[in-house]
Design a protein around this nucleic acid. Structure first.
Length: 154
DNA sequence: GCCAACGTTGGC
DNA sequence: GCCAACGTTGGC
């Protein structure tokens, strides 16, 4: 079983938006980066867990946990000319972009801010803390996962 | 295959 | 709004 961290701009899709969806489940669509595509398509498995991270907001940070409930399948938003994430180079016969479905597991009572995480020596090496990191999905080690979970319980 | 130009991300 | 980082594009 793998652990992940998934970023979303709350102005586009927040953890509260996820909470309002039927079965609190939603496709994680719109990824247009090959490294992340490969993780979505090949590595994320049903029952993997991920931190839900709010990016590009004040303050950024981890706001809860989601579970992967459907493994990688073609991102249909790439096929829709009306859609913001339309990509004419992807088609149903040879899809270029993939997505997974995520289901809400828990929203933390308090956000764990990026600043808080940065101040934890135990989290050295966490990809989100690396300078210049721009990937919207990153793997999280079991050690880092458990440490962050402990922070959320405090 | 190189690399300059350009676009996007995302913290600050 | 700024700008560092870095991915993508396309001319050559």
């Amino acid at each position: 079983m793998n652990y992940w961290l998934m970023k979303s701009e709350p102005g586009a899709f927040s953890i509260d938006d996820l909470a309002l969806r039927p079965r609190q489940t939603e496709p994680w669509d719109g990824v247009r980066n090959y490294q992340v595509r490969n993780m979505l398509r090949d590595q994320m498995k049903v029952n993997d867990l991920a931190f839900f991270y709010h990016s590009n907001c004040t303050p950024p940070g981890v706001v809860g946990i989601v579970r992967i409930v459907r493994e990688g399948y073609p991102d249909v938003t790439a096929f829709d000319p009306q859609h913001k994430h339309f990509d004419p180079t992807s088609n149903p016969q040879q899809p270029r972009w993939f997505m997974v479905d995520v289901q809400l597991v828990a929203k933390f009572p308090r956000m764990l801010s990026l600043e808080l995480l940065k101040n934890c020596p135990e989290l050295a090496g966490l990809q989100i803390l690396r300078r210049g990191n721009r990937l919207s999905v990153t793997p999280v080690s079991a050690e880092h996962w458990n440490f962050i979970l402990d922070l959320a319980r405090k």
